[in-house]
Simulated scan of single mutants.
Amino acid sequence: MKKYGTDHNPRPAASAESGRPSSARAPLRLAATLAFAGFALSVVAGLLHADTASANDHPATFTEYAGSSIWTAVHLGQFVGMALLIAGLLVLLMVLKGPDGTMTWTARFGAVAAVAALALYAALQAVDGVALKHAVDAWFAAPEPERAARFATAEGIRWLEWGMRSYQSFVLGAALILTGAVVVGARRISRLIGYLMALSGLAYLAQGWIIGAVGFSPANTIPTLSGIVLILVWSVWLLVSAWLGKDVPDRDRRRG
């Protein structure tokens, strides 16, 4: 005898399942938009940065910095850009962390590293964008008897900047590597995005080592450019994937 009320109609479930991806992708789209916007703002602010002189030639560099009228604004723009990029990483980690605990600890460590990287960057920009600017302005305007002492003060702040940027690069590199691992493990978006994130993290680790050892030397050119290009590629790819792509079904993720 047929028992009424025990059969399940698959249509509502299918309808609900078909409506899920669009709402589920909203946080992913937010993460991608924040990350790309942060990268773009950082690049624009960096293009306005006074850097025609060799960065390790302190007399020439300090003279150029003293003549910059937008120095503080440029560094504020760089900080906002980094804050948006870090916010994108944090949202991405929340989105991709598996509901069953998959990659939970990796995502947590990645989030801690990302927050620490932002805190270090805030301190770095306070030193570089505010303290160093005042120091070089005071050196440039000082009478000759005071110039040596003023220069020593500015150079000390510069060396502090080296140390802070070195460690910020280390921590940001770790955050990018951990986030890349979560992207690869989650399999919701292309794993190549995760690999590119990890590579950009390695570029930042290299930057941290070089800056800590020899400052802003030409030896840092390749790691710096590599990091910029890699972040450009994965942030654009993530943006396109989040807005135009489709979620990988759960069964395919488990199978992969």
Rank of each mutant, 00 (worst) to 15 (best):
K3E: 14
K3R: 14
K3Y: 12
R11I: 14
P12F: 02
A14W: 10
S15P: 00
G19Y: 11
S23K: 08
S23H: 06
R29V: 03
L34A: 14
F36A: 13
A37P: 03
F39P: 01
A45V: 04
G46S: 12
G46A: 12
G46L: 07
H58T: 13
T61Q: 14
T63K: 11
S68A: 15
W71L: 09
W71M: 05
V74F: 05
V74R: 13
L76S: 15
G81Q: 07
M82K: 13
L85R: 02
G88H: 08
L90P: 01
L92P: 12
G98K: 15
D100N: 10
D100A: 13
G101P: 11
G101K: 08
T102Q: 14
M103P: 00
T104F: 12
G110A: 13
G110Y: 08
V112H: 13
V112M: 13
A113V: 01
V115C: 13
V115L: 14
A117V: 05
L118G: 01
A119M: 04
L124G: 10
Q125I: 09
A126V: 09
D128C: 00
A131Y: 11
A131F: 14
H134Q: 14
H134I: 06
A138E: 05
A138V: 00
P145K: 05
P145Q: 11
P145E: 10
A154S: 03
I157Y: 04
R158E: 01
R158N: 14
E161I: 07
G163W: 10
R165N: 11
F170N: 01
F170W: 15
F170A: 10
L172V: 01
A175N: 03
A175T: 06
I177V: 15
T179K: 05
V182R: 12
V184F: 10
G185F: 04
G194I: 12
G194D: 07
L202G: 11
L202P: 01
Y204T: 06
W209T: 04
W209C: 03
I210Y: 01
I210R: 02
V214N: 08
V214T: 08
G215T: 10
P218H: 01
P218Y: 08
A219T: 06
A219I: 02
N220E: 09
N220G: 04
L225H: 09
I228Q: 09
L230H: 06
L230M: 03
W234P: 07
S235D: 01
L239R: 02
V240S: 03
A242C: 02
A242S: 04
P249L: 13
G256I: 00
